[in-house]
Write a protein that binds this DNA or RNA. Structure first.
Length: 388
DNA sequence: AATCGCGACAACCGCCTTTGT
DNA sequence: TACAAAGGCGGTTGTCGCGAT
């Protein structure tokens, strides 16, 4: 850690490191250093350039003032609106907010917000304008289920996707206007229109168990998006119930699933499963970009176990509940909204692995897992192949 | 002209997470 | 697996300019 060393005032002074405002000469030295050696390894700047600044100071100076594509000057009215909406949704997550505002830094946003907040408090005004108070923390947990198919994994641009959502509120990352219909706002920007979707049976729909198509591969995607807090997300029960509801009635009868295949170029994608929301943006490779129709199904996905559940995952569901009560998930702290926060990364991995294992054994086939994150969503993809 | 208050911005600090060994 | 270094993040403090008094 650098807490006691690099940032210690006494230690820095002892090493002759300078503090306070940067001079143009220092800026020039740092800029030249980054131009030659690139970003990162900031602690080496002092050694290699003679700049009497600590690594963290260099990084901050570069990030906030010297790096290219920074937008300087006052925030535009649009940017201000976005900041207010983002703060209503995210709280003091300045870095995440900055990721939604190209060219702006977390420090700028933080300063803007703090001064604005002081001003409004002094004036006795509410923190948020009335029209966006509904975005407030705690009422916007949302999830989506997407089903997509791969007519040919060599031609992934022909993928199709069906998306369910229970979302009823806006995503600030996708809109600066609160007047847009929520369902449009739920769409992942990665998803584009695919007019062919009409021809594809909805294999996961409770209303259509058809599984007849030429596809060799399909995927099951869960997207959880929660802005209630930075860590709050799905809990195992929710995920398992969703899986149970949407997988059992449609896939359980398929005995011929047998081959695991992670979609696309999986070597290029980190294969981890993180239940924490952060600012990480893992972009889908171009050949994996799921496509979808502009058809948005209105089927809300209920967390209640459906009557028609064939029960394939009931055991897992029950197991998960027992484990939640009994200790395996003892590190998952249930929040007031019924969701939980995983305190230990290993717990997340354990849950995911057990889910995959169970699906694999239940279907006597192999399942794979893949997780992507965009700025707001966590996606767990479970992909598998089947034979006709 | 001096000073006070305020806003805006820059920089620092400490804690936490990630990464490398 | 443990440890240390590096990096990231959010809170806090410092500095400066400007207008009001």
């Amino acid at each position: 850690m650098d807490g006691g060393g690099e940032t210690s005032t006494a230690a820095k002074e002892a090493r002759g490191l300078k503090k306070g405002p940067w001079t143009t000469t220092e800026d020039a030295i740092l800029t030249e250093y980054v131009r030659k050696r690139g970003e990162g390894n900031w602690n080496a700047v002092q050694k290699n350039s003679g700049l009497l600044r600590c690594g963290k100071s260099c990084r901050l100076r570069w990030a906030n003032h010297l790096r290219p594509n920074l937008r300087k000057g006052s925030f535009t009215p649009d940017e201000e609106k976005i900041i207010i909406e983002l703060h209503a949704k995210l709280g003091n997550k300045w870095a995440r907010m900055a990721s939604q505002l190209p060219g702006r830094t977390d420090n700028e946003i933080k300063n803007y917000w703090n001064t604005r907040m002081k001003r409004r408090q002094r004036a006795g005004l509410p923190l948020y304008p009335h029209e966006i108070q509904h975005l407030g923390i705690g009422n916007d947990d949302e999830f989506e289920i997407r089903c997509f198919q791969f007519p040919n994994q060599d031609h992934p641009n022909h993928q199709n996707m069906i998306q369910y959502t229970n979302s009823s509120n806006t995503s600030p990352s996708s809109s600066s206007s609160s007047s847009q219909p929520p369902k449009e706002l739920c769409l992942d920007p990665l998803i584009s229109t695919n007019p062919g979707l009409n021809q594809i049976p909805n294999m996961f729909s409770p209303y259509n168990n058809s599984f007849e198509n030429d596809n060799k591969q399909f995927g099951f995607s869960l997207t959880f998006s929660s802005s209630s807090s930075s860590n709050e997300l799905c809990n195992p029960d929710q995920l398992l119930e969703l899986m149970s509801e949407n997988l059992d009635t449609n896939v359980a009868s398929k005995k011929d699933i047998d081959v695991l295949s992670l979609m696309g170029d999986h070597e290029t994608i980190p294969s981890y499963f993180s239940l924490g929301l952060d600012t990480t943006v893992l972009e889908l490779p171009s050949n994996q970009t799921p496509c979808t129709s502009n058809i948005m199904h209105d089927n809300n996905v209920h967390l209640d176990s459906p009557a028609g559940n064939s029960g394939l995952l009931d055991a897992l569901l029950e197991e998960s509940r027992a484990l939640s009560r009994g200790g395996i998930f003892k590190d998952a702290r249930v929040s007031s909204s019924g969701l939980c926060e995983f305190q230990d990364k290993r717990v997340k991995m354990d849950f995911e692995n057990r889910l995959i294992d169970h699906l694999s054994s239940s279907h006597q086939s192999s399942f794979g897992k893949k997780c992507y994150m965009n700025s707001n969503h966590l996606n767990l993809y479970i992909i598998f192949c089947y034979n006709h």
